[in-house]
């Protein structure tokens, strides 16, 4: 067939190219239908990567706080993330309360239990009516490292809080960023203090 030439589609122009024809309508309708079908077919291929039902069902974690004395902290897992629970000392609470809001790099509470624009006062950060407890997602808001400060002997930064070893962000004893590249205070997860000794996260 090397010696044959052939007819190309360009050689069959429609009689009046300005006037839309039935063929144009069919082409647009068919093309649009095919595009919609492609989009619909593509969606399951993409959506399957979102958290699945088994991940979403791991919604709540209950933690017993009986043995956490003042000055101690524990770390628990919730939805695969570390949750810092610190039983704060009176000194730590006073330090956190003494800071004027205007001095904070991030003046928003970042507390999932409060309105989005709640100011970052210590009351808005600590547990409701139980200000000695601080429950917070222990992930640095810079690039996701886990700050030091939970274990005895850990560096706690200049503000008796947490110190992120990755890029040097420092958080105070209410988990608010005070220094370093982190843009936000560490987030407070949705939780309720079920009793004096029990917290339900999520």
């Amino acid at each position: 067939m090397a010696d044959t030439t052939h007819i190309t589609p360009a050689q069959f122009p429609l009689p009046d190219e300005d006037e839309p024809s039935r063929r144009d309508v069919i082409m647009i309708a068919a093309g649009g239908f095919a595009a919609a079908g492609l989009g619909l077919g593509l969606w399951p291929l993409l959506d399957q990567m979102n958290p699945d039902q088994s991940a979403l069902s791991m919604a709540t974690t209950e933690v017993d706080l009986t043995h956490v004395e003042a000055g101690q902290a524990i770390t628990v897992m919730w939805r695969g993330k570390p949750i810092f629970i610190r039983h704060r000392t009176d000194k730590e609470i006073e330090e956190a309360k003494a800071v004027p809001i205007d001095d904070l790099p991030d003046p928003i509470a970042r507390n999932a239990n409060l309105p989005d624009d709640a100011p970052a006062t210590d009351e808005n950060r600590a547990g409701k009516d139980r200000e000695s407890w601080l429950v917070m997602i222990g992930i640095c808001t810079h690039l996701g490292c886990i700050p030091k400060g939970q274990a005895i002997g850990d560096p706690k930064g200049d503000y008796d809080g947490w110190f992120c070893p990755c890029h040097g962000s420092q958080y105070d004893s209410a988990g608010r960023v005070r220094k370093g590249p982190a843009p936000q205070n560490m987030a407070i997860p949705p939780y309720t203090l079920v009793s004096d000794t029990k917290v339900k996260i999520g």
């Binding site: 969606w43 399951p44 959506d47 399957q48 979102n50 699945d52 039902q53 991940a55």
Partner: peptide, 13 residues
């Protein structure tokens, strides 16, 4: 079975 029950659109895939 996890694909069938939990994964988004897993049954369809």
């Amino acid at each position: 079975e996890h694909i069938m029950r939990d994964v988004n659109w897993g049954w369809l895939l």
